[in-house]
Design a protein around this nucleic acid. Sequence first.
DNA 1: GCCGTTTTCGGCCCGACTGTTTTCAGTCG
Length: 581
Amino acid sequence: MHPINLALARRLERLARLLELRGDEAYKIRAYLRAAETLESLPEPITHYAEAGTLTQLPGIGPAIARKIREFLETGEIATLKRVQQEVPVTLLELLNLPGLGPSRVRRLWQELGVVDLDSLEAALRAGRVRGLAGFGAKTEARLLAALERYKARPRGHLLAHALDLARMLLPWLRDIPGVQRAQLAGDARRWVPYPARLDLAVAADRSPEDLLPLLLAHPLLEQGRTEGGRLLLWDFDGFPVVVHLTAEAAFGTFWLYLTGSPAHVQALEREAAARGLGLSPEGLHTGEGLRTVAEEEDVYQALGLPWIPPELRQGRDELDLARAGRLDDVLPWEAVQADLHMHSDWSDGAASLREMVQAAWESGLRVVAITDHSPVQKVARGLSVSRLRQQRREIEALRREFEGRIHILHGAEVDILEDGTLDYPDDVLEWLDLVVASPHLHLDQDAETATARLVRAVMHPRVRILGHPRGKMWPRRPGLPVDIRKVAEAAAAHGTALELNANPYRLDLGEEDLAVVREVGAWVSINTDAHSPQDFGYRLFGIALARRARLSARQVVNAWPTEGLLAWVRGEEPTEAPLV
DNA sequence: GCCGTTTTCGGCCCGACTGTTTTCAGTCG
């Protein structure tokens, strides 16, 4: 995605949300959101279409939005947005993250009680003022207080995907600035920490922070910034912090290493250095003869008798031992995943045809895919009736012939796990499908005991091969089912069912703590993208990174199995290897 | 606000659930 397209899409999205809070017509809101989606999927920078005079030929962009786009390209601002931002407090947008609060209720809290942010909402709730509003009662008050508590306890930080998108757009730009010799991703995001607090960039340059600041602020994604010591603190349009750390090129290796962390990993390296009579600091290696600067990270590790350790493994756990023993490859290799067993097409709520999805999967390096559209209970997602499911098989058979010898296509379904743990298709249909991914979508407010029993029942169904996004969590809004993962994993291990690591960056479900339990129990894991459009296959990296952080082996991840073994397991045959219990 | 026609304006994804109603609005997926 081009930075200018993203910068503009963000503004249109914010405009839509603010208009929604103001109470403008719903279809106008949708129009802005659709235009933002179009911008995010454009192959060329929007300037290209503006210059060619073809803006209104783009889907969802008519005369009014085209005018705003041209205004933004010429002035860097959208007057309508500025005006609406003065009218509606931007801080209200965060309230929409609370389950139970939609635009209409937030508007009334704001207009009738003067609530503008989380703090004033909490104060109003605790003072009993909310339940005085028409349509709000004691139950709503209690639910909102509970939602507020859960929200405050959510994983802090921002979406990793957001940080990496930003880095992808900023780094090439930084490297082109005169005087900048190197620019690299560092910090939590480089280690694939799911919710980084900020984006850290390591930059080697022979210019001062004060010289660089105005150049960086010219970037369309960066809104404001200042210098602080040897660093530049910057913020993007949504207030996401970007920190540019400056060093000299000769010391880049140690500097980058320290900036990447984790602190526990770096401390382990310092102890390793001390054991060899060396000192390690961001400035370099301290030897008996004085300071030796190190420009490359590999050389730091080499000086300590270690191979380079990939950032996502730098957790201060067992990685130094693994590295010393030459066993870093015991952890699932990045390139080992060649199957994706959960994706959607425009038969249900996907954005692309079956053919486009299979083609994109093939191009992204996959060799086995499963088409898994929704089951009937998912009305909004246009879940497939049994007869449409049977029609879909004919199209899939044609695609199999077309892609013969290149990619193996399974015809599955993402079948809803109903409230009691039964499934949303009858058994004969489940029997007929190549692969059943069973997932919870509804009734995500169950208590731990009910939810655990529900998932265990689904996992034990003889036709279920994969338990999709087991908790049903969605960042930042939905915390997910309070399931006893150990019990679910034990049932899964006993039945040869895999638990999904859903790689969609908004889900990452199972999460890191859950995966540690699953690893210990020895149940199989399936890393899938849940792709709803061709570009979503890129989500795979988030899943693999998380699996690596959890130290899963290729043996435990079904998507990394050789094709024949994987297909045998999908068919429900006895696994060739016993589960790792 | 956009779109596709009926070329001037009506339709735009929909059904269930919940709490708060006393016939429904708001939220969710």
